[in-house]
Each structure stands twice: as C-alpha cells, then as structure tokens.
Design a protein around this nucleic acid. Structure first.
Lengths: 223, 223
DNA sequence: TCGTATCGAAACTAACCCGTTTCGCAAAAG
DNA sequence: CTTTTGCGAAACGGGTTAGTTTCGATACGA
C-alpha cells in the first residue's frame, strides 16, 4: 500500500539532466484547474500541458494518462485539517460542515463538481474521491460527536455515520441538480432542522419493526 | 412557453411522404437506452440512430442535436403516478420513497446516473431533470404529509420540502460516489432513523438564533 | 404518372483528441 | 567535451465525433 511511483530504487549512475520537480507541481495544478473548469470528461492532456506551459511529453513521462494524472493531482489536494473545539456541538458542527463543504473554497467545490462526470464511469477515480473527501470527513465528525457525548451534551449517537452524510449529500445534490454552490444558509438550515434535532434523545430511532423486510433496522449501511 | 417543435402552422399543401411518427419514438427510446448505458457525455447521435435502426439524417431532421434529443426523450419518460394511501405516514413514505428512487426500476436509475455527466455543464438539461424528477416528487410528498397531519398522526411539518429532499439526496450521493444502486434497506434506514423521528413534535426545530448569519432560520431554500 | 419529401445507409468534411515521436536546446555527469 | 537525459514545441498517425450530403428506394398527393 506504500508503493509510490516507480522510481529507480537503486541509486545507480544517473547521467543526464535531472527531472525538474517544479514541472510535476505545475502539471498537477494545471490539471486541477482544467478539471474545475471543464470537468473530467472534457479534460484533455493537451489542455493541461498547455496551461502548465509544458510539453505533452513531459506529462506523459510522469503519468500514464489522464486517469493517473487526475487521481494523483486530486489525491494531493489535501484540505487544511480541522479540529473544531468551540465547546458546543452546534458550534463544532457549523465549523466542520462549512469547512468540509467548501463554503469559502470555491476552487475545491469546482474540482469536486468537475470530478463528477468521471466518477460515474471510473471506479478508480471513485475510490480516490471517496478516500480523499469522504473518509477524513467521517473521522472528524465522529470525533466531534464523541466529544459532545463526553461532555454530556447529547446522548450517545449510534448512527453518526448516517448523520455525517446528510449535509454532504444534500449539498452535493443541490450543486449538481441546480448548480447552486454550497452556501451557509442552506447548511445551517440542515444543521438546525435535521442534524441537531436528531441528537435529542426523544428523536432517537425506536427500532420499529420493519414491515417491509420483516426484520428490525439496527445498523446503517451508509457510504 | 407552450411553443413546441416548429411545425407548419398553416395546413398548407404538403406533398411528399409523411414523416413516420414511429421513428420519433424509436429514436427517443434508443436515446434513453444509450444514455443509461454510457452516460450523456459519451452518448453519440450515431449510436442512437444505429440502435433505433434509423439514419442519422432522420434524427437531425427532428432534433437540432444531442442536447435537444436527450432533453425531449427524458422529458417524455414519465413515471407511473403514485398516490399511496396505506393509512399510516410510514407506510405511505415507504411506498413513495421506494417508488421515487426507482428501487425496482433499474432503467430509470441508469438513465438518472447517465444524465449526471451532462447535468454539470448543461443548464438546459438540469432544468429538464429538475422538472421531471424533482417537482412531481415534491408534490406527492406534500400530499402525504398533509394527509398525515389531517389524520392527526403528526404535528404540522413546516419543512416537508427539506424532508422530502433527504432520501433522494442520500441515495443520489451513494449512487454516484460508490456506484451502489438504490436498495430498500438503505432507504428504510433513512426513513426510520431520520425522516420519521423528525416528524415527532419534540424534534421540531426550536428556531434557534443563528450565530453565523445573525438572523433566525425560518424558511428553507431547498431545491 | 409526376413531383416531393421521407426513409435507411453510407460517404464525406471538419474538427478534435490521444499517445508517440522528432527537433533543437539546456543541464547534469563522466 | 561527450554522453545522456529532461525540457518545450510541434508534428504525426490513428481514432472518434458532429453535422451534412448523397444515394436509391419508398410513400403520399395532385
């Protein structure tokens, strides 16, 4: 799993000019920009190389093709880590949710939207996306909920995974279907009318018998 | 707004062979099938015409291009109307939600997924999609909630629009990001752990003052 | 019967993109 | 200096697509 780009392991004699590391970054950055502007399907290597002021050969010397380049570029586009600690669950959630939904980072939003056209077809891209955007989010959400539980602010939440998927899902849905980017008002509405009410003990699922499948719903199979 | 395809208004003398109306349907159906299989971006007029057993000229005589054909085809793909009346809110919601999320209509699901790659770029397509998939859903959800309120089963729900967007958003999110199609277990989990708990009076939003924007959240600006 | 418009099929132009290759130059190592 | 590799730029061959046009056959009206 730690396998990186194939690099000559042995430090054999390496004659010739060294690779310019700045070209890697320029190409990755250009890839992200083109991705944000035209989307994955319409992204071309020519466009990326041209924007980076590089030749296509330079690009193909580093990545096998479009998919590898984009996955690498997106994979390194790490967001600034967050560990909100406002003292209240709501405060933490507001900070967290606005952060993870890129309310003030339109570039990340555009990259995300641009990736969509590729996600449907490319399982590799889907995996990279999930690992980059979904996994870290889930971990931080869990920490925030756990802290609120420790404080005694809320009762234990068995389905924090489900809860932490609500906002991203609805923001994503709105972005794709209406073109409207994430905005704080929308996010706060979801937090105050959905997420926070669900943390109150009286709203906890009463594990009602399921007349459709015949068994009781207990665990969630969220993404 | 009622303007249809440009058709000779005057019933002038029309010599020559009449257009075969069956070709329209064949092309629209073929377009939907190709759309479901390869997605909007990779859909080509050649493929559609070939599948319909028609010539490209026949297609271009009817629609100006890919966008017009797909919008028309999708726009006519009406789902069977539903008016669930099981006597309980949960029963109605289960029927409704499974129906609108195409749990047993994989073709509609595939069309929906295929459209995604085009939605990001094409506002026209986005509008058609919203009108076809979102608007009818919203209306039926409203009716179901209203009926439950009349029965006295739940207290008035001010935010049924928001509630009716939760399941589709999460199903959509999961479909795009993990490739997993809608399944009843996932939908029932959302219903029982999110939607239904939120209809209980104690879970209603207490209209908390909003420290972020400074005003109170009252209305939702959902899609 | 004659003119016209449709049909499916195929050819065609023009554009685009991918991945490779070539070219002239720059840099690093021997 | 020579060799080897990286660099930007450009060109190339092969493939795909859009949209148009042509062709022979067919259907409809006058």
């Amino acid at each position: 799993m730690t396998s990186q780009v194939v690099q000559a392991e042995e430090t054999v004699h390496t004659p010739g000019r060294k690779r310019d590391a700045s070209r890697d970054d320029a190409l990755r950055q250009a890839a992200l920009e083109v991705l944000a502007e035209v989307g994955y399907d319409r992204l071309t290597i020519d466009a990326v190389a041209a924007r980076a002021g590089a030749g296509k050969a330079t690009c193909y010397r580093r990545w096998a093709g479009k998919a590898e380049l984009v996955v690498d570029a997106v994979g390194r586009m790490k967001a600034a880590p967050v560990q909100p600690n406002t003292g209240t669950l709501r405060g933490d959630l507001v900070e967290l949710t606005c952060h993870f939904n890129d309310v003030d980072d339109t570039f990340r939003t555009d990259v995300q939207a641009g990736l969509v056209s590729g996600l449907v077809h490319d399982a590799k891209l889907r995996a990279a996306f999930a690992e980059l955007f979904i996994a870290p989010r889930k971990a931080v959400y869990r920490a925030v909920f756990d802290r609120a539980i420790e404080r005694g602010e809320i009762a234990p939440v068995p389905n924090y995974e489900l809860l932490s998927d609500i906002v991203p899902s609805m923001v994503f849905h709105r972005l794709i279907l209406t073109g409207r980017p994430p905005d704080p008002a929308f996010i706060l509405t979801i937090l105050d009318q959905i997420i926070l009410p669900l943390t109150k003990p009286c709203a906890q699922s009463e594990a009602a018998p399921n007349p459709h499948t015949g068994h009781t719903q207990t665990r969630t199979t969220s993404s």
